[in-house]
């Protein structure tokens, strides 16, 4: 190319250079902010199973949920499920999520393996993310038997 031609091409070359440089700069800035956000998420992460374990500890441990409570002495037996209480209504009083966006919260399906009975929280839509298991005793009209409580957890939809 002669000198005149080179001079004429110069502004076009700069424009192309800056277009590529602009894209590269934007990519670098986006990658950097992505890294920061990712790092922040990593720092604030906690395992969903931990939260589910802690929430579900109430089901078999407190009398407001399914734990058996002696009517005369008032003593609560943690880990002993009162079969009479094992209903959806009791579960609603024990744990329920918001009517509008409750599906974004943890929901549960509880099943007593030997009794084949199950109860659901109000926004449970059969999307099991994981399952927790808990050995329990079931009190049915004064008679106790061993059972396994299956806690199916729906983290969110």
């Amino acid at each position: 190319m002669n000198r005149k031609g080179e001079e004429a091409f110069d502004p076009a070359r700069k424009t192309i250079y800056w277009m590529i440089a602009g894209v590269m700069i934007v990519l670098v800035v986006l990658a950097f902010s992505g890294t920061l956000v990712g790092y922040k998420n990593k720092l604030t992460y906690y395992p969903p199973k931990l939260k589910a374990e802690l929430i579900s500890s109430r089901f078999a441990n407190i009398p407001e949920c399914f734990a058996y409570q002696d009517k005369i002495s008032g003593r609560v037996y943690p880990g002993v499920i009162d079969l009479n209480k094992f209903t959806n209504a009791t579960l609603y009083d024990c744990y329920h999520t918001g009517q509008e966006k409750g599906y974004e919260d943890y929901n549960f399906r509880l099943k007593l393996y030997n009794k084949s009975t199950e109860v659901l929280t109000n926004n449970y839509f059969n999307k099991d993310d994981f399952t927790l298991f808990r050995k329990v005793l079931v009190n049915n009209k004064g008679k106790s038997s061993e059972d396994m409580l299956y806690i199916f957890v729906q983290v969110n939809i």
């Binding site: 906690y46 931990l50 939260k51 802690l54 929430i55 579900s56 500890s57 109430r58 441990n61 407190i62 009398p63 734990a67 609560v76 943690p78």
Partner: peptide, 10 residues
């Protein structure tokens, strides 16, 4: 989580 733990404790 502490609230949930205390709630689940008799």
């Amino acid at each position: 989580l502490m609230v949930n733990t205390l709630i689940g404790t008799p």
